[in-house]
Design a protein around this nucleic acid. Structure first.
Length: 421
RNA sequence: CGGGGUGUAGCGCAGCCUGGUAGCGCGCCGCGUUCGGGACGCGGAGGUCGUGGGUUCAAAUCCCGCCACCCCGACCA
């Protein structure tokens, strides 16, 4: 992508009405636009990040044998009434409206009930099971108060997966597989080491559910952590968990975290309430077991910004960055332009994402500052100097890599660029 | 939803206390000089001062209502 064609601009000043680091930087760098409190539009660069995160999640969900689909934003009242969750007293985040003929409809804050209802049409026999489906959906929740930028909004993108089984054992096996899949997701997103499978309140069927909690000061949760034993417990169930797991509270470290994912065993309650059954091998009607598995896509994006940003701006892990390299062209001399264009074409041809700063009016300092603010992993400079030396200058963005920019030839550059993430 | 704070140019702000021609920086447009870490000079454009009402000869400024945004708390199957 050429910056000269990108309509967004960076700003030297952070927006005054945002306090959270993620919203400030994402707005400053032109990744998101705030439409209203708790609702952000994703601009080209921000959208690229969202899509990169989604793609990683998609690959891992597909590897679990799950089927991607997309449910509707508008939802039926009667479907939710079956489980008593249409009631505003029970679910206090509903956005509701009416059709022209006065039929009440809800805006999807979750999709469990509609998916169960939908699957009644397709699941009748044990031969149809197990089934796993997932989607990336914009969830709409009428939160009393939006906060923390894109980490806690009224409109956000979530991956939600649901699995359906003919036995508790089948569900449990899949549940455990999904834990491993989630770990791979967070590893690939670059926050695996800081994300803990955490015991949390379970609900009707199991004593505990599992949350994926990422250490983050801007998060809303508090967990108790034993890094050595890799045990994490949400504050809300700490007393129960200490008893259950036979650990002492004193050996646990208290840390602030953001809930980036959660998985939940529903047992058969919801399918029974909604009348989703199957015929077993013995010809009798039996109850289905459901698991539900969420990952907050846009929240993950916010957490990544919060965790890695430094005083110069965002620092994206390579796997989610909107581009792998920021190509800064300094100068407008014919040979400089030619060299930069050629490199841009070559990198693009090789499938390497490039943000090409071909702006004629921007001075070097401005380009460097933008490269830093946008958090692109590599910065490559093409200038009269580098052309004369028949080389390119390359520098990593990440704050933990020290050292000045180095000059490399095209072969070396391409080798670095195509190296595994 | 309770408490607190803030709304003035695209962005960041001053002006309000003490009413009297709406200002600064960044950004934007034009010309010139510059050109490796957000350059400089000259010229220029851009404003329902959140909104509705009230007081006054006169309101960005004083009073009342409303709206929006932010923070703390509560809430977060």
């Amino acid at each position: 992508m050429r910056l000269s064609q990108l309509f967004t601009k960076t700003s030297k000043t952070a927006p005054a009405d945002e306090v959270s680091k993620n919203a400030q930087l994402l707005i400053q760098a032109g990744f998101v636009y705030k439409e209203m409190a708790g609702a952000y539009a994703y601009l080209p660069l921000g959208l690229k990040v969202v899509e990169n995160i989604k793609q990683i999640v998609r690959e891992e969900m597909n590897a679990l044998g799950s089927n991607e689909l997309i449910m509707t934003g508008l939802q039926r009242k009667d479907v939710w009434e079956k489980t008593g969750r249409w009631d505003d007293e029970t679910v206090d985040v509903w956005f509701k409206s009416k059709l022209k003929d006065d039929t009440e409809v809800g805006f999807g804050w979750s999709h469990e009930e509609p998916i169960v209802e939908m699957l009644k049409q397709y699941i009748q026999s044990y031969k149809d099971l197990p089934v796993s489906v997932y989607q990336f959906q914009t969830k709409l929740r009428n939160e009393l108060r939006a906060k923390s930028g894109i980490m806690r909004g009224r409109e956000f993108v979530m991956k939600d997966m649901y699995s359906f089984h003919d036995s508790a054992e089948s569900l449990e096996a899949y549940y455990n597989q999904s834990i491993e899949a989630y770990k791979r997701v967070f590893d690939r997103l670059g926050i695996g080491e800081e994300t803990y499978v955490t015991f949390a309140s379970g609900g009707a069927f199991t004593k505990f559910s599992h949350e994926f909690q990422t250490i983050c000061d801007a998060g809303e949760d508090v967990i108790y952590l034993h890094r050595g034993k890799n045990i994490a417990v949400n504050e809300e169930v700490i007393d129960d968990a200490v008893k259950e797991l036979g650990i002492s509270r004193d050996e646990l470290e208290k840390v602030k975290t953001a809930e980036t994912g959660n998985i939940f065993n529903f047992g058969t309650q919801k399918t029974d309430e909604m009348g989703l059954h199957f015929t077993g091998q013995d010809g009798t009607e039996q109850s289905l077991y459901i698991g539900s598995y969420g990952i907050g896509i846009t929240r993950v994006m916010g957490v990544i910004v919060e965790k890695f940003a430094d005083e110069r701006g965002i620092v994206w892990p390579e796997a989610v960055a909107p581009a792998k390299v920021y190509l800064a062209r300094l100068g407008t001399e014919t040979e400089v332009v030619r060299a930069a264009d050629e490199l841009y074409n070559e990198l693009t041809k090789q499938g390497i994402g490039v943000l090409y700063d071909d702006r004629e009016e921007a001075r070097p300092g401005e380009k460097f500052a933008d490269a830093d603010l946008m958090g692109i992993p590599y910065r490559v400079v093409v200038s009269a100097k580098t052309v004369a030396a028949n080389s390119y200058e390359i520098k990593r963005r990440s704050s933990n890599t020290k050292g000045d920019p180095e000059l490399v030839n095209q072969t070396q550059l391409l080798k670095i660029m195509s190296s595994p993430i």
